[in-house]
Design a protein around this nucleic acid. Sequence first.
DNA 1: CAACATATGGGGTGCCCCTCCGTTTTGTCG
DNA 2: CGACAAAACGGAGGGGCACCCCATATGTTG
Lengths: 183, 183
Amino acid sequence: MANPKTAPQRSDWQRNHERLLAAAAALVARDGAQVSLEEIARDAGVGSATLHRHFPSRQALLEEVFRDTVERLRRRARELAAGDPRTGLVSWLEELTIAAADTRGLPASLSAGAKAPADDTCHAVVREATVMLVDRASEAAAIRPEVSPDDLLTLVEAVTQATEGDPPTALRLLSLALDGIRP
Amino acid sequence: MANPKTAPQRSDWQRNHERLLAAAAALVARDGAQVSLEEIARDAGVGSATLHRHFPSRQALLEEVFRDTVERLRRRARELAAGDPRTGLVSWLEELTIAAADTRGLPASLSAGAKAPADDTCHAVVREATVMLVDRASEAAAIRPEVSPDDLLTLVEAVTQATEGDPPTALRLLSLALDGIRP
DNA sequence: CAACATATGGGGTGCCCCTCCGTTTTGTCG
DNA sequence: CGACAAAACGGAGGGGCACCCCATATGTTG
């Protein structure tokens, strides 16, 4: 899972890994991305050294916590790629915004992933989906050709981080940005 | 200054206040809004208790650090209110974005001020200017009437916080948001 | 210049991240 | 099955931070 090598992990390693992820998911949902790592270890019933051995950084832990949520988003993007290019893109951005605004810690994790380039981060997965849908819309001339997927994604990440826990506001800001200010 | 009562402060109080602000300005510019308060106290040559006595919270310190910058912005908004409503608003948002993206810690401070309503925060000053320019543009039908000054400001704060230290990207995201994505 | 309000800062508390290293658990192989 | 090595664990400790207490020092004022 975390280990890229196919080395089979010991059973206690797997057990603790799951306990840590469960505790982390609960506490991140309650306290956000800056939750105390020691509290996660305590809740999981393991020493803090074990947590740090399993997850070399806070970001690495968050990446695994949000893996499933991001995977669902990725599948949703694939569905949307079958329909109308414009509404597909808009729906994607809306659903991404709702998911991020609803999920404490996810905006912070996505933004953090944007700064450390790697292929398997949550940010990279979401980015790939965004690139695909923007390209489709662009080719269909449904959006201005100079609109960049990365800019659009940064905008969504910025908005959701600024409005964490308030999906209506996040959506309102998104549609303002998509429509512009002109009459 | 910080004290709402008109009690005249002792001379050493004023001296230490200035030293703290100078040290804070330098370190915030270097490290951003989450700089260590103890380091600021050390640099200023005072005990950490003194820093906490002068500034009851990190936010209170940041508010004073950025007071001058925000005051300059406020005056600039007044100038812009004399010209064309549409370009005035756009210039205001652009200049605000540039200032915030250039000034480490300012985006975080503005966003934090948005959550704790008070009349004398940096956020409140910037907000007042934004309300005025948006109203002018709205009355002149230069923008859609449902565009809210608060949403626009939140958008700028979100963008500058997400792109701290990178004014070109911040400006690109701003103009994307102002123009929308449609052809 | 004395007395008093005001301000200071060293040191303490509690929390946090992270790592070291002696101990325990696990899987395997004779 | 029992012993052994590799793998994993966790308590403890170093270093850092925010914030507070209280004995001390310092302006100010009459």
